[in-house]
């Protein structure tokens, strides 16, 4: 069984998923998992597809490209060998934290924050940006959901992020995820 990763990007409209999925099915493929998101007006989807042994990624790619042209989408098909990264092979014990960045958008913000996270061995599991503009600090917020390995010294990470915050004139807080869950989710 061949596996492929398919990414679909472009302006949103009805029928994108129908067109993509139909081509996959017609080529004998099966969608094993998928995730779709909307970023403002932009549609983005990532699909994990299993293909019959005799099929070629290239053919599927060609067929999807035509769909892409019709719907003005950028579609990529990559063979996927399922080889794990070191992090995945030897997953360290982690604690989930929520990192919130409060303040207006700054050039290099994501780069600086994520570089510090990477330097401290922290894995980002999700990022959300909530930029509504205006003066209310809560309307200019970035949320990083991260997994922090036990080996990471929290104080070092906080110090590094604090330094970034000072330099970019933004406020960066790191709180354990449990506080958000326990306060928000009454039925847990």
């Amino acid at each position: 069984m061949n596996k492929a990763l398919i990414s679909v990007l472009g302006n949103d409209q009805p029928g994108i998923m129908a067109a993509v999925a139909t081509v996959i099915t017609d080529h004998g493929g099966n969608i094993e998992n998928l995730s779709q998101t909307l970023l403002q007006s932009v549609f983005g989807a990532l699909l994990m597809v299993s293909m019959p042994e005799d099929s070629q990624c290239a053919e599927l790619h060609e067929a999807l490209k035509q769909v892409g042209q019709k719907l003005r989408l950028s579609i990529h098909v990559d063979p996927w060998d399922e080889q794990l990264t070191t992090w995945q092979e030897n997953p360290p014990e982690v604690q989930p934290y929520i990192l919130t960045v409060i303040g207006p958008d700054r050039r290099g913000l994501v780069a600086e924050v994520s570089t510090q996270l990477a330097r401290h061995g922290v894995n980002i599991t999700n990022i959300q940006a909530i930029f509504k503009g205006g003066k209310n600090p809560m309307d200019n917020l970035m949320v990083f959901e991260v997994d922090v390995p036990r080996a990471t010294v929290m104080q070092d990470l906080r110090d590094a992020l604090h330094e970034v915050g000072q330099r970019l004139d933004i406020e960066i807080d790191t709180q354990h995820r449990k506080i958000f869950e326990s306060v928000s989710n009454i039925s847990n």
């Binding site: 929520i98 919130t100 409060i102 999700n126 959300q128 909530i130 809560m138 917020l141 949320v143 959901e145 807080d173 995820r177 506080i179 958000f180 869950e181 306060v183 928000s184 989710n185």
Partner: peptide, 14 residues
């Protein structure tokens, strides 16, 4: 994934 509303309301409380 936590939703935006929950994150903001918890942050505001604190």
């Amino acid at each position: 994934m936590l939703n935006e509303k929950d994150i903001i309301s918890t942050l505001m409380m604190v």
